[in-house]
Design a protein around this nucleic acid. Sequence first.
RNA 1: GCGGGAGUGGCGGAACUGGCAGACGCGCAAGACUUAGGAUCUUGUGGCCGAAAGGCCGUGCAGGUUCAACUCCUGUCUCCCGCACCA
Length: 846
Amino acid sequence: MAEQNTPAVGSGYDPQKIEAKWQRRWAEARVFEAEADPPKRKYYVLEMLPYPSGTLHMGHMRNYTIGDVVARVKRMRGFNVLHPMGWDAFGLPAENAAIENNTHPRTWTNNNIAEFQRVLRRFGFSYDWRREISTCEPEYYRWNQWFFLRMLERGLAYRKKSRVNWCPKCCTVLANEQVVNGGYCWRHEDTLVESREIEQWFLKTTAYADQLLDDLKELEGGWPERVILMQRNWIGKSQGAKVKFAVAEIGGAHPIEVFTTRIDTIYGATALILAPAHPIAAKLLEGSPTRAEAEPKLAKMRLTSVKTEDLATMEKEGFFTGRHAVNPFNGEKIPIWVGNFVLMEYGTGAIMAVPAHDQRDLDFCRKYGLPVRVVIQPLEGETLVEDKMTAAFDEHVQGRLMNSGPFNGLTPEEAIAKMTAFAEQKGFGRGETIFRLKDWGISRQRYWGTPIPVVYCQKDGIVPVPDKDLPVLLPPNPKLTGMGESPLASTPEFVNTTCPKCGGSARRETDTMDTFVDSSWYFYRYCDPLNDKAPYDSSKVAYWFPIDQYIGGITHAILHLLYSRFWCKVMRDLGLIKHNEPAARLFTQGMVQKGGVAMSKSRGNVVGAIDMAEKYGADTGRLYTLFAAPPEKDLEWSEESIEGSWRFLNRVYRLVEKHAGSLRTVGDWDLNPKGMTEKERQLIRFTYKTLRRVTQDFETRWHFNSAIAQIMELTNEIYSLEPLEQNVRPEIRKEVIRILTLLLAPMTPHLAEELWEMLGHDNGLWNAVWPDLIEGQIQLAKDEEVEIPVQVNGRLRGKVKVAAGTTEEEVVKLAQAEPSIAHHVNGKRIMKRIFVPDKLLNLVVA
RNA sequence: GCGGGAGUGGCGGAACUGGCAGACGCGCAAGACUUAGGAUCUUGUGGCCGAAAGGCCGUGCAGGUUCAACUCCUGUCUCCCGCACCA
């Protein structure tokens, strides 16, 4: 199909040639290289670093194009712009591919990186390639280890045996965040995650739960609202109280603690319900009268997989343990049950069931015939009748306590405060805030990741590897099977080492770190990528940070961004940086779809970036992804529509090609409006208006699609004045074409450079500044004559052309003289006139 | 269930703080140039009625506020995304 688009005779637009030429020149002139330079205004724009796998398609290119436009606009506006790129190079696919193809993960990864780099360079993105990082290089991952050791020193990294998500296909542990769709592996969406107990390393993200939540306030306005919300939900702060219930049959020795946000309803508790996995459940059954029937039920419930897909709609199941709990408020004995809807992972794994005031509890109690007791009576509406309730009354506000001993008559709010205080005073409870957020399990039983820098010594136990021995290098030739334990465990030369403390023999930790560790701080390394004394020089980071604009997909709204925010706070507390949040602004671009679904290799609906560049050139590809939809919205790829972008660039090229030769030696226009013809006046006004609007679109709304539409309109306007050389004097022709070229520069930089050169500039468009309107131009952009729509009773009936600023009286007079308007007004009385100067006249008649 | 977002021509989309709905592009139609056109240029292109002038309807649906509503308010439907038995 490329032949079909061979440029016609007379049009010399050859993107292949032009794009290679300017990419070479930019590289030679080191145009995109930036250094920290404190007096200069800085701008750090960053696209999320890619995982180098598969092929880059137009979905990726859209992301980078948006970032590149921003970078180029900021550069033209005089900012010192940092715009780096790197590779999220560790990860499972490399290891799997290595096993499949009998190669090394490094080989596979580096091949992919080479290909990715080739494509990104082919699109002419303005990266400072000197700062390129690859997270699988020891020079990088060494600092993962260094940070890990700092966290270990501060108790922010710890080891514990824990139930983990195990993917039988990956043969490795997954973080909670990697379990998707309620129980499936994020990589194998058809594979149910299993539950296993393993010793794991954790990072204490929960230590920062409050800050991670509170600092979201700093991001308001700069981050998309929904991302902030998703983070807030994920952290899941919940204020309530923990209350201890003694077990009646075994005395006060082993009380059961429940968590509740509604301690005010505790007099209405008619049962205590345990999660099946609660450790005390089995103990309660020992010697219980119901043991025989209960134990098999418990065993069965515990086996039920972690699948939570339809947990919300799942039938509630439970059984009585034969034991009773004592309500510490009133001494009442209530039955202890086990219920499948109680989660061990949340709160204390035990709840009090208050069926009158919680729908789930009501469902459960109705099913098993447990009593319902109302303890809060609504102030308005029908009085609750216990036997007839089908919906729990769970409103906080509108009610008063009853059946609650000394607390009767209080509002729920008052009761929560008083009852919590009472519980604390008596020692059986306390107010507590809990979070849904869990500590971050970072251990992975895989080869292609950062080795965790500790050794296990018979004598000294867990011993951190000293800083001077970093990095702990991955062994070059592991045995990769993809099964079972970490491949490092079966590599003796790696495992066997000596204890840094006692010098005796010791074993290395064989797990590697979750790759989210790599991406949690990579953007700091860009500031100082070659530093071998520290992860980075704090002064360099202080100049560049925070990131002014971070750009990436919504898919990373929770994991990557939450971990990055955590890492930032840890680094701040280590004294390395001073800011609280890594990125001041975040932009989440929409996906590129084809056939209604996101482009992806697995779906087979990708439009390859290189194919695109070879067929139309990078500039057309860039332009089309910007033009087809506003950047935050999903974009449906259309092979037909893209022709329009290609045609437009050809049209611009032909225009400049035709006129540039005669304009090379023409001097600059002096902005003097005297003696201009009407056509010149019209063209120059259109030009400066377009400039004003496009500038606004770039700076505020990022509506590149409408910016491009306006540039197309300007081009159409110029064409409408052909033959231009007869209608417009050379100085003005030159000015208009100059502006047109500069407007295109951030989006189609190669073409713009070529046009710039054709116009006689020999110093590179990259040296040009954004043509912000100056006073004379602002005047010239103003309309002298306006067309005012005239409505009668709110319906458009005609238009009048008047000088800008014409008075209401004058406009009304002219309107009434217009036949199409007069027709609707004559014979009626004008009741009211609404006049918006230069905008609109509405005559209300009756 | 909770939270967020979106519904505008044949299609992608535009319309900034309420002020000419459909900019710009694709597609389609007619014409020009041409041996030819899938290049380029010109014109037209929301629906209905009408020869035309013109009129009526029209931004998911139903109401409301207003001189004026894609835009604000109330209700409602559909689709997409996130979270989800979170105590």
